[in-house]
Design a binder for these strands. Sequence first.
DNA 1: CTGTTAGCGCGTTCAC
DNA 2: GTGAACGCGCTAACAG
Lengths: 345, 345
Amino acid sequence: MKTDPDGSAPRVTTMQQVADELGISLSTVSLALRGKPVIAKETRERVQQEAKRLGYVYNRSAANLRQSRRTLVGLVVPDITNPFVGEVALGLQANLAEHSQFVVLANTQDSIGTQTEVIGSLIEERASGLVIIPALGTRAEDLRLLRDSATPAVLMNREVPDSGLPLIGTDDREIVRLAVEHLATVHGIVEAAYFGGLREAGPHQARKAAFDLELRKRQIHSAEAWNQPTGPNPAAAYAAARSLLHAEPLPPAILCHSDSIAIGLIRALDEAGVPSRSCAILSIDGIAASAMTTPPLTTVAVDPGHMGRRSGRLLLHSPDHDAEPEEPARPHLIVRTSCGCPAEA
Amino acid sequence: MKTDPDGSAPRVTTMQQVADELGISLSTVSLALRGKPVIAKETRERVQQEAKRLGYVYNRSAANLRQSRRTLVGLVVPDITNPFVGEVALGLQANLAEHSQFVVLANTQDSIGTQTEVIGSLIEERASGLVIIPALGTRAEDLRLLRDSATPAVLMNREVPDSGLPLIGTDDREIVRLAVEHLATVHGIVEAAYFGGLREAGPHQARKAAFDLELRKRQIHSAEAWNQPTGPNPAAAYAAARSLLHAEPLPPAILCHSDSIAIGLIRALDEAGVPSRSCAILSIDGIAASAMTTPPLTTVAVDPGHMGRRSGRLLLHSPDHDAEPEEPARPHLIVRTSCGCPAEA
DNA sequence: CTGTTAGCGCGTTCAC
DNA sequence: GTGAACGCGCTAACAG
């Protein structure tokens, strides 16, 4: 059905073939198919019918090459499986769809090597932009190809010093302030810990520092033993918490670096038979899953979906990638019951 | 730095420019850059240095156009945020990376309209293949462009009758058998329900049918009131369960259509103060989150990551998209405590 | 309104 | 070894 009658190469139909079949010019076909009003309505319809009959399909990549237009935005992340990243991807994709851009996924597993590879490939593919949650330990020089290629890029969550790339981050000071304030004000907590998150990652350091500051300000004691960094997923948090439980007394309150961390922590506590009331748990992110834990998480929401949309906007609006850090999204506290607050009616 | 000295268009460097700069031919540059042994080693190095100096970057999309090679595989799904989908994406991406292919994300939100749109765009972009979890109610004719364009495609989870497309699905009979067997054999259950999942979706119907069959076979009573379909996410399951709890007695055992459903159900039960021992909960999927609920889910794992990898393999190996349904992955039961089994040491 | 001519940036024969 | 010429599929500029 799609093989040439003469038995030659079974290629896909091209505009030229449509034109030949109709005995008209190639450019007429091009104009007709794009509905340019320059072409007589009747001609246009004949062209469209013939195109459909021959099974012609528009080759957008050829068109893009010609117009040096791009349709791909890379999303380079350590782990797609992370629900936070999932919500970012959704927001980004929604925003890009409005500009007929696609998001292409790239996993780095926090390996700088594969990160360099995928960024290179994405640049070669002429992506119109990149959203990057950098692999751990990424230095500015690891991102040099990016700058040299003049590909617009946005960093997310983790900053890369001297990279000159804009960062879509969170207002860590405010996040931690909201959390500690709640702990102090409504729960009268006098001792607390900051649990989880990758020590090497920017957000962890910023939040931990903010946490220490807030504690001092409010004269709350820091439960040092539980100020433990961990891997980013629930399983890692679970493992860390489990060890700690066997060795150290549980503080009366814990602020978790993310909802994922809190999920792992809760699992460990439950498994050890610790009643959930005995420790007030707060976390950060506000992913969908945070509403479905037992108990549901009181969390400082940062709206990852919105972060995704924002990075899309930033990418598509500033062709130059010089730093122009947008203001972080406004975090807000969602009170549920993991902190000890009563459930709502 | 990247603007022309004469002040004209600040275009990106091309191979031609590299050639001119060196006073050699364009094809020499091309051959040199790709390390073809036809070129003198010395020449090659000079070319590479000059290329780097000028900030030249290989334009893979131009190359692909020339060789009519493709590098994109579309992943068309109702909701990227679904953790099951996330694990599929990870597996797919891992498999495709080996063949230097990228996965591009497309969300349909279960809308056939936007599904048609994105599939169309993906075909126009000359994707080398598509992995599709079809939107609800997708008919074969909604996928006609796909067949006509001869783009290889794989369906996942939800079948589309008469589409002629291969399906990467789950062995629903076996899944349900494993679950019910466990319920009957180790927990001596005499009444049970199948809860959650979209009524219109293939897996729901298949599993529900298999469930009914197994119950009859084992003389287990079906708790009709709780045989309720729901939306696919925890929130929907939670809402449905909450209503049911107020109206109907809780059966002694519930098989959930997915881990996500179980998560919502558990939330509703906990909120209503139902002790978790009073109802044996089993679910299906085996996503990472299933190990972190309270209580942890006993679930029939289907390995979504593996499904992703398999679909990648299928796409890249069978250029023709005629049905050749691979055998479903072998499901296996992961026993945790939501069913009432004791926790492991 | 339609057709002609030149590219977009690269890969691939062929001759030299 | 090297270089000219052509093609990929489409769009843009200018004719007519």
